[in-house]
Every structure is written in C-alpha cells, then in structure tokens.
Design a protein around this nucleic acid. Structure first.
Length: 223
DNA sequence: GACCAGGCACATC
DNA sequence: GATGTGCATGGT
C-alpha cells in the first residue's frame, strides 16, 4: 500500500473513531447545500444557521423565490452570516446560473462531468474552488475532495505538505492517494472540519486531538 | 477588546 | 505571480 494513502487512512480511521459519522452536509436538501456553501465562506456555521433560519422564516428558501428577491432584501435576511452585501451578490450570481441557465434543475446539472461542473461553478463570481467543490460533493453527490483552511492546517502541522502548497496540491494529495469514493470523500472532509474546529485553531493546544498520536503540531502557536 | 470563523475578488506592485 | 486588502456578524 502506498505510504501516503496508508497515513491518510490512519488519519481517517482515528477521526472516525473519535467522532463517528458526520451526516454532512447539514442541510435539508441540495439547494440548501448550495446556499449554505456560499454563506459559510470564512464564517462560523452557527452564524450561517441564523441566516438560513431567516430565509426559511421569510419563506424564500426556494431557488426561484430567492432569485426573485432583491439583492437588498436578501442581504438583510442573511445579515447574521456576515459579509452580507458581498454574499447577497454572490448568491444572486449563483441563482442566476442555476435558475436562468439550468431552469433550477439539479438533474440537468448532474449530467455535467465533474471537471465541467467545477469549471462552470468557478466561473460564477463569488464561487471559488472550495465552494465549488463543496457544492459538487454535497449537493450533487459527485466524488471530489474539498480543501479548506483546516485541511491545510492539519496537513502542514503533520508534515504531509508544506505551507505554500496550493489548493490543487492538497486536492491531488487526497484524490491521488484515495479511492474515488463518494462516501469516503464526504466523511473525510466533514471529519477534518470537526477535528479542525475542536483541535486545530491557531492558538489552541492540540490536547485530545485524535491525530495527536501520529505527529505533533509543527507550529500550533501561530497557524 | 482582540481574535477567530468550513473564502473570494480585486488592486497594486 | 505574489502579496495585501475589504468584506461583517457573533461567539469565546
């Protein structure tokens, strides 16, 4: 077995043992996944939940209703998620793509090959690599590995990649070593976020981290 | 009050 | 290409 794959699977098993099944993405349906993926950009999920509650309470958590809403009204509803003016614009861009170009049909978009969907999503202003991959994996159920800040931190702290590694470097590390398995990619990223939240903050000590047994944190004080 | 959060686009050099 | 900056609320 390839060494890196062996290490990654040990990480996965240790995290799964510590935290169990994650049941990601925390949303009622694929559309909510798309909305949540934009709202959570550089934002604590708790704040996103408040914004989503506002949308549901206003009865606009629906592709065409949200698309019909003015940007100002949308911004007002998603305020708790922060960056509300920026995110309202980004959501409108995503909704225009989804509703106008694909008639709000997940089935139509699901016909895309993963790489084509990746490209289409990233071409939407406000959708970057991570948001695109999160939507592809958790809304469209296509196996692609999602890289986020926690992934970068965990990989660098355990010496699996260097600080300057790009998004693609990290993505390739996982996708090149692991089997192309939807359930595995789904759980792996969710577990990384769980471990990251609890043990991998910039100034947090790594005590109790399920990955502590494999390697120490290189620089937990500053990054 | 400072720091952090499941990024991204854009300006500037 | 790479480096810096604005965007903003809410929890610790």
């Amino acid at each position: 077995m390839a060494p890196t794959r062996d290490i990654l699977m040990k990480f996965y098993d240790a995290m799964a043992k510590a935290y169990g099944k994650q049941h990601w993405w925390p949303a009622d349906n694929p559309f909510e996944v798309m909305v949540g993926a934009v709202l959570t950009q550089n934002t604590n999920w708790k704040n996103v939940e408040k914004a989503i509650e506002n949308l549901k309470a206003a009865e606009v958590m629906d592709p065409f209703k949200l698309h019909a809403l003015s940007q100002a009204s949308l911004a007002s509803l998603i305020k708790p998620a922060g960056y509300f003016n920026v995110k309202a614009k980004r959501l409108k861009n995503l909704l225009a793509w989804f509703c106008e170009q694909h008639d709000g049909s997940f089935e139509a978009i699901a016909q895309y090959h993963t790489y084509a969907l990746q490209e289409a999503l990233v071409n939407i202003k406000g959708v970057g690599r991570e948001t695109a991959d999160a939507i592809i994996l958790y809304a469209f159920n296509k196996p692609t590995f999602v890289i986020d800040r926690y992934t970068h931190r965990i990989l660098t702290r355990h010496g699996l990649i260097d600080m300057e590694a790009s998004y693609d470097d990290m993505k390739q590390l996982f996708e090149g070593c692991l089997p192309d398995d939807l359930a595995l990619f789904n759980e792996f990223h969710a577990l990384i976020v769980q471990v990251g939240k609890n043990h991998c903050k910039p100034k947090a000590k790594c005590e109790g981290c399920p990955l502590e047994q494999f390697a120490h944190c290189v620089n937990p004080e500053s990054f």
